[in-house]
Amino acid sequence: MLELRKDIFADERDDNLKEIGKGTQRQDMLGHVTGTSPYFDDHKLQGMLHLKVVRSAHPHARLRRVDTSEAERSQGVRRVIRASDVPRNLNTLLSLINFGKDDEPSLAVDKVRYKGEPIVAIVADSRARPTRRLPR
């Protein structure tokens, strides 16, 4: 016989268990209809920076040169992260399930292998668009 732990939610409801057939208001509804439910984009942290990723426009191409000089000079840019800054990718799908060779780079090194592959990450004060210069 299963023991019912009635003490756990004692402060949230009376425990007569007569809930069936009654409408129950959702706990998050008031926040939703007043627009006060916080979503990911609504957080403002102190000293918060924004990261934007420059991605490959080509499905398969050699990276001959990545020119970040203009981005580095742009106002508000704190850091330009290149592939050499993150030599090991600790969060590939394969590494998370502890399986197989872990060869997917965080940022493309010498070649992009799909359209949209990350090449450079730019950390800046605001989310205004960083300039991009990527000769192929």
Binding site: Q25, R26, D28, M29, L30, G31, H32, V33, T34, G35, S37, Y39
Partner: peptide, 17 residues
């Protein structure tokens, strides 16, 4: 707002505003 709450017209709430 009252009607949205009473009629379960929000689920994740992102479109609600």
């Amino acid at each position: 707002q009252r009607a949205f709450a009473d009629n379960f017209a929000a689920q994740c709430g992102y479109c609600t505003p």
